[in-house]
Design a binder for these strands. Structure first.
Length: 270
DNA sequence: CATATGTCCTGAGAGC
DNA sequence: TGCTCTCAGGACATAT
């Protein structure tokens, strides 16, 4: 998402609008008029990712977009008009609008000052752990190894490590050959090294392929095109199909009310 | 403190 | 066809 909207860097914000939307308007904090006052006229200095969030810096202000399940950031026509939640217009004749589109409406848009942003995302009391692509294997293990939770559930805890979602947790554990129900405190050092390595591999490859467009077709890149990583899924949404490593049938279980896919033969508990 | 559960929403697809 | 049910790339408040 961040890569796709990077063309907005250097543009000046002309207007921030909440398009007429048939459904309840998306959560924007603070109010939309405050957002307007603080960013209109400013210039986009950078676009960055923090965990699963998209951060747009405009002078000393950070617009943080949390897409959650069905949110998209777009520089192209949205899939529907009725789920369009936010529009940012820029200067320059050919500059497309930046759109936030969200079918389910669970996503959020929040404006932070530099200080608020640092406290929220980087300080000691930060609400997010280190980013999944920046953390070391040792720190990762240190953050998980005393937890009694199943490893797959723990990987989704954004305060432990930021950036692993439900789909990728299953993919990571299959590549690492670790059973998703294994308790964190029962995993040895080499298991955590495998999980860490698999996390880097899976996430960096998925980012390179621009994400996973599942069968519902919801996820799109910034140009409203399919992602490509769904063609590389090892286990996710493949229950009943063959394990790509050993040929055993992939199974689906539910952990913490969310689907987990794995191979019962080649994913071991330690 | 750590962990578990309910809740916010809409829409697609399965099964009857 | 139309109904009900389940499920969905998530995070947070509240309960235990």
């Amino acid at each position: 998402m961040c890569r796709g909207i990077r063309p907005i860097v250097g543009r000046r914000v002309l207007a921030v609008e909440r398009p007429p939307c048939a459904r309840r308007p998306i959560a924007i904090a603070p109010r939309i008029d405050v957002l307007r006052r603080r960013v209109e006229g400013g210039r986009v200095s950078s676009v960055e990712r923090v965990g699963k969030r998209v951060v747009i810096w405009i002078a000393d202000e950070a617009i943080v977009i949390e897409p959650r399940m069905t949110g998209l950031v777009l520089l192209a026509d949205p899939p529907t008009q009725e789920h369009l939640r936010l529009r940012i217009r820029f200067d320059g004749r050919k500059s497309p609008d930046l759109l936030f589109w969200d079918r389910r409406g669970l996503g959020t848009v929040t404006l932070y000052s530099t200080d608020e942003f640092a406290a929220k995302f980087h300080g000691e009391a930060a609400s997010l752990g280190p980013d999944a692509l920046a953390i070391s294997a040792d720190e990762m293990r240190a953050r998980f190894c005393r937890s009694r939770r199943p490893v797959k559930v723990a990987l989704l805890d954004q305060k432990a490590v930021a950036g692993v979602g439900n789909l990728y947790a299953s993919e990571i554990l299959h590549l690492a050959a670790i059973h998703p129900a294994a308790r964190c405190d029962r995993l040895r050092r080499d298991a955590w090294e495998r999980i860490h390595g698999a996390m880097l591999e899976v996430l960096s490859t998925a980012i390179r392929y621009e994400g996973s467009t599942l069968s519902d077709g919801t996820y799109r890149n910034a140009l409203n095109q399919d992602g490509g990583y769904q063609n590389h899924h090892r286990v996710y949404d493949r229950a009943g199909q063959d394990c790509p490593r050993c040929g055993e049938l992939i199974v689906r279980i539910v952990q913490a009310q969310r689907s987990t896919f794995f191979c019962g033969r080649c994913q071991r508990r330690k």
